[in-house]
Design a protein around this nucleic acid. Structure first.
Lengths: 109, 109
DNA sequence: GCCCATACCTAGACTGTCTACAAGGAGCGA
DNA sequence: TCGCTCCTTGTAGACAGTCTAGGTATGGGC
């Protein structure tokens, strides 16, 4: 599992889906966006990111399309599907449930 | 990784250390305690719990001692060491940092 | 005698993340 | 033109924590 210093295991899918909720993005931008939104706390390694994207695409939660990036190059843009949106809701609820439960254990005198 | 439905990956050590902060407990009781404190949300499987305890003991964060349980049987009681206490602080801080970062990403319109 | 709750343990599979590497194009300064 | 940096995608292999599924043993209640 490497070192769980950059990410909490099992939350990457959630983070990716969430960043795609507003607009389609290409892989590289997704990593940057997560990093930026988390104020540089979360770092998504490429070796984690790309396999995750392929995983999500295979599940039918996101869909890829080649297009031109902001810098004028070809990039693979991923967009949330309907199934992806419902998956996002599910994962968000689960995260809230579990993190709240952990805080119950951790956060008491 | 099985299914991350019962636990958030990488948080079990933290949960165990925290439950041992107040008083030494034996393995079986630790699992029950976590389950109870989290209001039945977190379920610690024995196949996760015992390897984790051995791992923590090997790191010098907890220390085992055989004693009699509440039900009058022999049980292995684990107590937090000094190193374990500082590790608990470290892991707590890390959890707060990371979960806050995730919430920054997830919890915005 | 039998089952259930307590209490410990392990082997093997699963899987997500990490490190490290590979590859290529665009822009830019020297 | 050479080399550097940034963008952009990707793979292979190692690593490690959790799960499933099994095992052993004791004591109490029926």
């Amino acid at each position: 599992m490497g070192k769980p210093s950059d990410l909490v295991q099992g939350t990457l899918d959630l983070l990716i889906l969430k960043t795609l909720l507003l607009e389609p993005l290409h892989g590289w931008a997704i990593g940057k966006r997560i990093q930026q939104l988390s104020r540089e706390v979360l770092q998504v390694q490429q070796g984690s990111l790309y396999p995750a994207l392929h995983r999500l695409e295979q599940q039918g939660w996101i869909k890829a399309k080649w297009a031109e990036s902001e810098t004028g190059r070809q990039a693979k843009f991923y967009a949330l599907t309907a199934a992806g949106r419902s998956q996002l809701e599910k994962e968000t609820a689960n995260w809230n449930r579990l993190s709240a439960a952990i805080n119950l254990v951790v956060g008491e005198a």
